[in-house]
Every structure is written in C-alpha cells, then in structure tokens.
Nucleic acid binder design. Structure first.
Lengths: 238, 238
DNA sequence: TTCAAAACATGACAAATATCATGTTTCAGA
DNA sequence: TCTGAAACATGATATTTGTCATGTTTTGAA
C-alpha cells in the first residue's frame, strides 16, 4: 500500500465537475489536450491559490471544494468579492484582460484545483467559438452580480445585506441533507468580509436572527429555520 | 433652409468615435452592415436610453455624449454603477447573457446614440473572433472596476471614496482646455450616486476640499487645484 | 425677463455601525 | 490529551454618516 498523500487527479473525461463546467460540451480531442497539459493541487485552508499583483500563467479549474476571491486593503482587512465552487474556473478575468491578478484566491475548505496553461486555454478560445461565448456569459453574470452588490452596499443597511448574503450562500452552495443547513460553513470573519462589515456586527446580527427564530447556529453551521422571514429581512424586491 | 431638428447621423465609416470603439478594426464590408441596419437618436437630460426589466433588442453605441448606467432601489434612490463616453457601447452585458436589462441608462448631457439590432451584432460576433475578444476584454475591465468598487465601498470612508471618484472622473472623461477642470459636470446628486452616499454629504465634503484648496468650484464645474493632495485624500495604494 | 422648480448649502440631530476592551469557547497541532 | 491560538461573544463607547429642516441660489422653460 502506497504511503504517498498526493491525491489522484482524475482524467478530465472523468472529472466529476465537468458536466457543470464550461468544458461540458468540448469534443473529446480538445478535452484530451487539456488533460495532457494540466496539473493539479490540493489546497488546504490557509494556503493561497494565487496572489494579487502576480502574473497569471494559466486557468484554474475547481475539481472539488469551495474558494473565495478577495482583496486586502492597507490595514489588512479582507473584502471577499466573489465565491466559487466545483466546476467553476478561476483567474479567467486577469488572464483575458492580460493583466496581473487583481485579487487573491484561497480555499474556504480543502479543495482540489487543476491548472490549465494559458497557451492551451487561448488556443482553445481561438478554435472554439462556443467557449468564447461561455466565457462572455460568465463574465456577464459576474458583472451583473458585482453591480448588484455595489448598489446593495450603497443602499442597504448591514442587517439586510447579511440576510441577503445568507440567501445567496444558500443559492450558490446549496443545502445539506436536512434541506435547511447551508452547504458552506464560513467563519464569522469571512462572512463579515462577504457582507462588508465588522466581524462583531455579524456576530451580533446572527445572534439576533437566532433570537428571532430565523436561523439556528451550531458552530459555523447555519440552519435556516424561517426562510420567509429571512427573505423579508433581506428586503429583496427585484 | 430645413426646419427639422433631427441630427444627421454620420455613416459609421465617418463616425468620430469609431477609432476608439470596439469596431475600430472591422473590415469596411462589416462596417457597412452595421451602418445599413443602424438607427440613431439624440437623447437629452431627463430621457432614458433603456430601462431595467425590459428586453434588449440591440446594442447602443455612443457617437457623442456621456451616459450613466444606474439602478434604483425601493425608496427611489439611484446608484450609478457604470459610466460611458463617446465610442463606448451600452447594453452588451444584458444582450450577451440573454437577460432583461438589469439597470437603467440615461445621458448625463445631450448624447447622440446609435442602435445596432441584436441579430446584426450576434452575426458579427460569430464571424469576427477578434470582436469576441474585445467584448471579453471590456467585460473583464468592467468586472475589475466593479470589484474594486465593492472593496472600496466596504472599506473606505466617504471622504476617500469621493476623492477617488473625482480622480476616476478625471481619468475617464478627461479635462477641459485649462488642464484642470473636469470634463464632465455632474450634479451633486449624481456625484453622490456614484460615490454611494447622501447628497448633503457630498456637498459638505466638496466644500471642505475647497476650503483645503484642493479643488475650486464653479457651479457644477470642478477644478482640481492640488492633484497631489487629492490623491493623498483618496488614499490609493494599489 | 420672469418665475417656479430644481439644485445647492448649512445646521441640528439621530441612527447605524465601527472600534476597543474583555472574557469565553472551540479547534488544530504537538 | 494537552495547550496555545484562533474564533466567538458581548458590553461600552466613539465616530461616521444619514436624515430632517430651512433657506439661498441657480437654472431652464414660458
């Protein structure tokens, strides 16, 4: 029996996340090209996938796990600008605009992430018009949600933003088997860095939600008890 | 002499903004297709170019003028999420993602805006791989600046955000002949809706900047007197 | 030119939220 | 299993910023 810890990276054909990725309808031959050139790495909490200010040399693709994309200000405070899950790609924004990374990326939990060299990615883009269209759609969706967040940050109080963040997490990462507990367990600090507020404020508001029987808390696990009230608290209308 | 007010729309070949637009290197024949199918309209302050929730039927292209793209919350408060100028296209985000418009667009000053039907735009996308790449780059840039704004809204006080907004306006719309006055004259309210704060707060802070000799104010015209101090006030480091 | 509406301006005050301090609990590594 | 560090929690307080009120100035349309 082998001692090596290195996780086996599946062939792209067998990738559990392929069907929900941008490569879902890529012809076998093209997929082979990716598979041949790709590398893979298991990232643990505390490691970084890439750093702001460094040059992108390829595209990351999440086999399993959950990832945060974030910025850091002078005082060291994080702001999470985007989240990603299995099947999602990372680093396409900087790769396409030909710039240095403008954010950091790090796993929220142990994550297996493949790496596709930039030359391979760009040659796929050239030959596969459909792939371009998919990238454009991802960028469009990202831009839409980013602009929604700008408006929310400007116009909504923290309480509403936190409630909305819980709903977004539910939507994005899904629920556990009990159909009520969020499928992702963020620290209070990470949650604060999503919402754009102080950690203490998130702690206080979560306690309020719990007192109001809207959620239940068990460590980092958040269970939605009263979805209707949560939607009302988020004050969503569009 | 003709009485009609209708402004003559130039042929795309002669469009003053073509060289700085995504169509700058399109072959003559393709440009002819656009020109043949396009319409044009002069929009004045108070009119809308498109509305959130309506279906995009084509792409807008600014011949001259300045445009704001904004959202409105329940209480009727605007948040400006993006700005545009001559040569820029509008409405590509929703068009590409195949959704209803997620924002409003309106001119900041009298603007001549052409309209390219969606079928024409999509057929250009199919045949012209270079155009796809340009759209991707625009989306990437928009996403980058949107994510920067998210971080700023979360982490920076209003004073710094306002100073940064003035620098961004300077960069984006340029300066007048005196090399100091911003090339765009926003109302205090529009400026507040860019920064994401109350109109009164913008008025107060602009007065402070004037007292500190950083800017001079003449109606809606803002003249930058001390660029260095403005950069310091914006507290930019990246 | 006039006049009403919009924009600008400023003060007083209230509300939301950050910060600081302190203590407890949880968790991961030795 | 132990133990130190990180995460969680809560109170007290300070600060920022929004809101409301009021008055002035500017602007654009008749």
């Amino acid at each position: 029996m082998s001692i090596r810890r290195k996780i086996d990276i599946p062939h792209c054909e067998d990738c559990a996340s392929r069907l929900c990725s941008i490569f879902n309808d890529l012809p076998s031959e093209e997929l082979g090209k990716i598979n041949h050139s790709k590398g893979g790495n298991l990232y643990k909490r505390g490691q970084n996938i890439f750093y702001e200010g460094t040059r992108p040399s390829g595209l990351y693709c999440i086999n399993f796990g959950k990832v945060k994309i974030y910025k850091i200000d002078q005082s060291g405070k994080e702001q999470i600008v985007r989240l990603a899950k299995a099947g999602d790609v990372l680093g396409y924004r900087s790769l396409i605009s030909g710039e240095l990374y403008s954010s950091f990326a790090a796993p929220l939990e142990d994550s297996l992430i493949c790496f596709i060299p930039r030359t391979v990615f760009f040659s796929l883009l050239q030959t596969n018009a459909n792939l371009s269209m998919k990238i454009m759609k991802i960028l469009s969706q990202d831009l839409k949600s980013a602009e929604n967040r700008i408006a929310n940050m400007a116009q909504k109080p923290v309480r509403e933003r936190l409630a909305e963040a819980l709903l977004i997490l539910r939507e994005f990462y899904g629920l556990e088997d009990d159909e009520a507990t969020l499928g992702v367990a963020l620290t209070r600090e990470d949650l604060a860095n999503v919402v754009g507020t102080a950690t203490e404020t998130v702690i206080r508001l979560l306690s309020e939600f719990r007192e109001d029987k809207i959620i239940a808390l068990k460590g980092r696990k958040i269970k939605i008890l009263d979805h209707i009230s949560l939607v009302k608290t988020a004050n969503i209308f569009d």
